[in-house]
Amino acid sequence: MDELRKRAKELLESKTISVVIGYEEGTCNRTRALFVEKPEEASKLIFDSRCVLNLATYITKQEVKAKGKMAIAATIPVMRSIIQLAYEFQVSDKNLLVLGITPESNLMEFKDLLEVETYIHKFEIEINASYREKLDKLAGMTQTERWKFWIDELSPCFKCYACRAACPMCYCHRCTVDFNQPQWIPVPSHELGNLEWHIMRAVHLMGRCIDCDGCANACPLGIPINLLNKRLLEDAKRHFGGYQPVLKGDHLMSTFKPDDKENFIR
């Protein structure tokens, strides 16, 4: 990604940008986030297929925001997250420049977020075949089998909240699980609390999750928690025609249609 390095260096030298967020080589053949503040450090930036971490997680953090205007190397899922964050007034053109990375790994600089929005709308949010297979398999089970599946899957969870930390949409300063009056989610690592935590997480991300799989990648136990989000994505598609992050307009769960269809209310 010479283009990206060159552009990052230029931006930092001209002082239009104070920090460039990208990826660098980490340990154990993994990549990690890099915050470039000096032009000479721009050469550390890399980009390849291992770069799956959703960098949009960092742009809502005070420590990063305080540095000044940010530029971010953004793949399509990251761009989607950025648009959703902009919709929620977490970032704006004033403090963010998007250095887009196309699926062909080319650099694509965007003038403003409006351009980013237009660009990402060319791509549908789609669930890949292996996940679809898993979803179909679960849908084919009986209710008791599904219950057993999830209790088994979630029971080892010790609530490290890595899924929350990896998610760009989980930016609340105080998360509902951190409250103890009332204590909504039991603290101990225990099936009920784990189940409730993951249900709560899925519901809070309903209509906001853009399917980057960051949560499942971050999970130290490899629990497929993103299946919950994927299922809700499917349901949103089935019931309300799906969603795409937008800068302005209606959000899936904060709006309604008088003729929303259901078949279970008496």
């Binding site: 999830w150 993951h198 309903m206 919950l228 769960m253």
Partner: peptide, 17 residues
């Protein structure tokens, strides 16, 4: 209503009766 439609689907998915 919108919330119930989605929440009911999620409950069904995690195996709540």
């Amino acid at each position: 209503r919108r919330r119930w439609i989605m929440f009911r689907e999620l409950c069904d998915f995690v195996g709540i009766d």
